[in-house]
Design a binder for these strands. Structure first.
Length: 640
DNA sequence: CTAGGGTTAG
């Protein structure tokens, strides 16, 4: 406040104010006006020519003679400084326009403010802002936007309030900035009301910002409400709503909106396609993803879009396509490498993943937190205990990354799977993080592989303490008890589930055939070809049994999708989907299935034997990993 | 002079 009053007094005393008729402000009486004006002309020309060195020299001379140019000329000079990232020159301009008590217009100070923001010098911007004798909506918006971009949400919201208190009305620029600073529904609702009151809800920038922030807070119905409020003629508004659903794992709705968008006559751009690919990724829609790929070619070297395409192919289990995209990408960033490494690992190609990690380092790319996770995942799923342990131990030293909870999770998985359950428990105790549900699930997974019932019960109980809604774990626990005839405990688990209102999500498998998605659920007979499917499935089971297949009725430590009986096992959703794929797809085509629950041991054996008997390839993606079945073996090496 | 949309894990 002191600084402001000081500046104000200087401003009113400044001689330049009373001589504002000419562009030249004269601070000295001994020099003829004509030479001032030629100096000024020179300076102006250099600024417009973007000749920074000469402009700076001319500015220096002007400062000695107490001459100032008009704000537009300075703004040209500042643009030039920004383009060249000339911070020191920019500061000299700042000093110059305030020299000898000269008081620049608010317009020009705003430009200086914005300049500091763009140079990421927030402290300097703040200092200048504090000194401004007069702050208009642009000054406030510049600061708010700066704080929003710096993720200083509280500060951004505080500045909105201060601005209102000073009686400055926010405009659409202000709202589209400050909306991004909302981190709770309360502040967002308040802002939304103010926007409506100010009559700004139809502004496309405000609308897209509203949709985006509602989506980021998971309030998709509100986002959709804003979107449906009025028809939009703006691509970004469309992209916001499509992206909102894609990022909230509602691929179906994202794809519906995308269809609506195309019907409305909007050609998709990079951002749209990135979201659409993400939706395909979540739903494992390889064929639709391929169709989108055709549009992607138009935006050939867009890095983000290519990364999304790469991920889509990985998560749809088509490593051939993923490799094709990856090798053709001229520009690769850490996300491209991480995506490909994790993609190979999840699909069971651990060796390839580790080789690619080596290539990445040879190439000179710097791994990040997520890259290392992919590497550790590769090691754990290939049983490469020593490699994994080495990377885990040396990640800090080699890559400067501290192991996080997720890294510990991978290593617990690695040790657990390798049968080193004691070491895994030791690590949980030593890791310096409070173990979370994911940590205990890693241990539980290891118990499943090694059939360690007691430890499994312990881990399952820990999971339920931390995540009391986890239906799968209740079922698993109840199955364990049932298997040991501990009926009281079975009943107890069931009672808890009922009391908490936890219901098991039904196991479901999806398969995409001829651009149609077919869903199968155990016991659901609504598919039009269900009789044909059941009869084909029975035939397959019968023929496989003739070749030695025995349904695996050991249900212990398995989170089954239905009741425990051989008969229901027979109709697990993935078996139905496989049978359907066999009768509806030509022999050379890979049968690709996505399911929402992990594959059970019986279906795994079934699929393996089937690929041998029928010479087909089957890919099943479960929530954690991928199984590529071919010629009687699975890419997971029976290790999942 | 100030504003909006897209990618890796969990």
């Amino acid at each position: 406040m002191k600084a402001i009053s000081k500046l104000k007094s200087i401003a009113s005393a400044s001689p330049s104010r009373s001589r504002s008729l000419s562009l030249v402000s004269i601070g000295s009486r001994n020099v003829p006006a004509s030479s001032f004006s030629s100096l000024l002309d020179e300076f102006t020309n250099f600024c417009y020519q973007r000749d920074l060195p000469r402009a700076m020299k001319a500015m220096d001379a002007m400062q000695r003679h107490g001459i100032w140019a008009d704000s537009i000329t300075y703004s040209e000079l500042i643009k030039c400084c920004l383009a060249r990232r000339a911070v020191n020159e920019a500061k000299l301009v700042h000093n110059h326009v305030f020299s000898n008590g000269h008081q620049p217009k608010t317009f020009l100070i705003n430009i200086l403010l914005n300049m500091y923001v763009k140079f990421n010098l927030l402290d300097q911007a703040q200092e200048l802002f504090d000194q401004m004798p007069e702050r208009n909506v642009v000054s406030w918006t510049t600061m708010i936007s700066a704080y929003t971009n710096a993720k200083l949400n509280a500060k951004a919201l505080k500045y909105l309030i201060l601005m209102l208190r000073e009686g400055v009305m926010p405009n659409m620029f202000t709202y589209s900035s400050v909306l991004r600073a909302c981190d709770g529904l309360l502040s967002l609702t308040q802002l939304h009301c103010s926007i409506i009151k100010a009559g700004l809800e139809s502004d496309v920038f405000v609308r897209s910002a509203l949709i985006d922030i509602y989506s980021k807070l998971g309030e998709l119905q509100n986002a959709l409400g804003v979107f449906n409020e009025m028809v939009t003629g703006d691509l970004v508004v469309w992209n916001s709503i499509v992206g909102g659903f894609a990022q909230n794992s509602d691929g179906d709705e994202a794809l519906n909106l995308y269809k609506r968008m195309k019907r409305a006559g909007f050609p998709p751009d990079q951002s749209t396609l990135t979201s659409v690919l993400r939706a395909c990724t979540g739903l494992a829609l390889l064929e639709l993803g391929r169709q989108v790929h055709v549009h992607v070619i138009k935006f050939d070297q867009d890095l983000i879009l290519n990364n999304a395409l790469l991920d889509m192919y990985c998560k749809c289990g088509s490593l051939k396509d993923a490799n094709f995209v990856f090798t053709r990408m001229l520009e690769k960033d850490v996300i491209s490498w991480s995506t490909m490494i994790a993609g190979l690992a999840q699909n069971g190609f651990s060796r390839e993943a580790l080789n690619l990690f080596q290539s990445m380092k040879d190439y000179g790319a710097k791994p990040n937190y997520i890259t290392i996770l992919g590497v550790l995942f590769a090691c754990s799923h290939a049983g490469l205990v020593e490699d994994g342990w080495y990377y885990f131990q040396s990640m800090k030293k080699l890559f400067g990354i501290d192991p996080g909870r997720e890294h510990y999770g991978c290593i617990i998985d690695l040790l657990g799977r390798a049968g080193k359950l004691d070491q895994a428990i030791k690590l949980i105790n030593e890791m310096g993080f409070e173990p979370d549900a994911v940590t205990w699930r890693a241990l539980l997974g290891a118990c499943r592989v090694h059939r360690n019932v007691d430890l499994a019960i312990f881990a399952a109980k820990q999971i339920l303490k931390l995540d009391p809604e986890d239906a799968g774990t209740y079922i698993l626990l109840s199955n364990i008890y049932a298997n040991s005839q501990r009926w009281d405990e079975v009943a107890e688990v069931r009672r808890t589930m009922k009391a908490k209102g936890v219901r098991k999500e039904p196991g479901c498998s999806w398969i995409e055939v001829n651009k149609q998605i077919h869903a199968f659920i155990l016991g659901d007979n609504s598919h039009p070809q269900i009789d044909e499917i059941n009869s084909h499935l029975n035939q397959l089971i019968h023929r496989l049994m003739g070749l030695g297949y025995v349904p695996d009725t050991n249900f212990v430590l398995q989170d089954l999708e239905g009741e425990q009986s051989e008969d229901s096992l027979r109709y697990h959703s993935e078996k139905l989907a496989i049978a359907f794929g066999m009768i509806s797809m030509s022999r050379g085509k890979t049968i690709r299935i996505r399911k929402n629950i992990r594959i059970c041991g019986d279906c795994h054996i079934f699929a393996k034997l089937l690929t041998k008997m029928e010479q087909r390839t089957i890919v099943i993606r479960d929530p954690i990993r991928y199984h590529h079945f071919q010629d009687g073996v699975c890419s997971c090496g029976d290790y999942w």
